[in-house]
């Protein structure tokens, strides 16, 4: 039976093939079979985790607490110099120029990407906005969030900063960022489940030295990463504690 590998559903479509290439690289490194299962949304991925169908995951920071504290996962690595940050934007023609000018009852376009949504909601707090006084529309992608703003269907949108910067320059020109987070310590991480615990040290070493050979560099490039950095248990616990404070 192969082990099961999955990726946080918020990966950018450009890197879809990269994750399949990475899955092949893992199999060669560990000499074990891995099946890459991609889920359409966080809900179905969490159900699979709950049912014990995941052994290795590139996880959203929002899910890290559940993976570590309830499912016995531990961190391996994180992408080098790549934290998750959120941007709140409006239509470029909007009279709104800062978060504090947003009023109760606004229409918000967001995705089901949990860490970006959490950071976005925190950045709305200075305007006294929360889920009780906004109207939220959930979109399947950041491109659709942008469309909501361009069409004037929503007043304000949450974006993963990377996704916002990946929008075409024509679309970006029609949007106005109000605020960008600079949190720096919230990021995705590759996490290993209890069934693979005995392979952890060797696997981590292979991941950390990926950018030292041509093949590894090619795999990293297909994922859009420059390399991996070690993530130890205490760093993960710190990130979990931090996310915990933001959910309170």
């Amino acid at each position: 039976m192969p082990y099961n590998f999955t990726v946080s559903p918020d990966f950018t479509p450009d890197h879809l093939s990269g994750w399949f290439i990475f899955n092949t690289w893992i199999q060669k490194q560990l000499g074990e079979g891995f099946h890459l299962e991609l889920y359409n949304d966080f809900e179905s991925q969490r159900k699979a985790i709950e049912e014990g169908k995941v052994d290795l995951i590139f996880a959203n920071p929002y899910d890290a607490a559940m993976l570590v504290r309830e499912k016995g996962f531990s961190p391996l690595v994180k992408p080098a110099s790549k934290s998750d940050e959120a941007i709140i934007a409006v239509n470029a023609e909007s009279p709104i120029n800062c978060v504090e000018e947003l009023q109760s009852g606004i229409k918000l376009a967001s995705t089901d990407d949990p860490d970006v949504h959490m950071m976005g909601m925190i950045m709305l707090e200075p305007a006294d906005l929360d889920k009780t006084n906004i109207e939220m529309k959930s979109c399947d992608s950041y491109v659709l969030v942008a469309k909501e703003l361009l069409r004037g269907n929503s007043d304000v949108g949450f974006f993963l900063a990377e996704a916002f910067n990946d929008l075409s320059s024509m679309v970006r020109k029609q949007l106005k960022p109000l605020v960008s987070s600079q949190i720096q310590v919230v990021h995705h991480s590759l996490m290993i489940g209890p069934a693979l615990a005995d392979k952890k040290d060797g696997f981590r070493q292979a991941l950390l030295s990926m950018n030292e050979d041509e093949k590894g560099q090619g795999v990293l490039k297909s994922l859009g990463f420059s390399g991996f950095e070690e993530m130890d248990e205490e760093e993960m616990e710190f990130m979990i504690d931090l996310v915990d404070t933001l959910l309170f």
């Binding site: 504090e100 925190i122 950045m123 707090e125 200075p126 305007a127 006294d128 710190f238 504690d241 931090l242 404070t245 933001l246």
Partner: peptide, 12 residues
Amino acid sequence: FTSVRRKPSRKK
């Protein structure tokens, strides 16, 4: 203990 501080609402 971890303490995290964020921008407050002016009204609060």
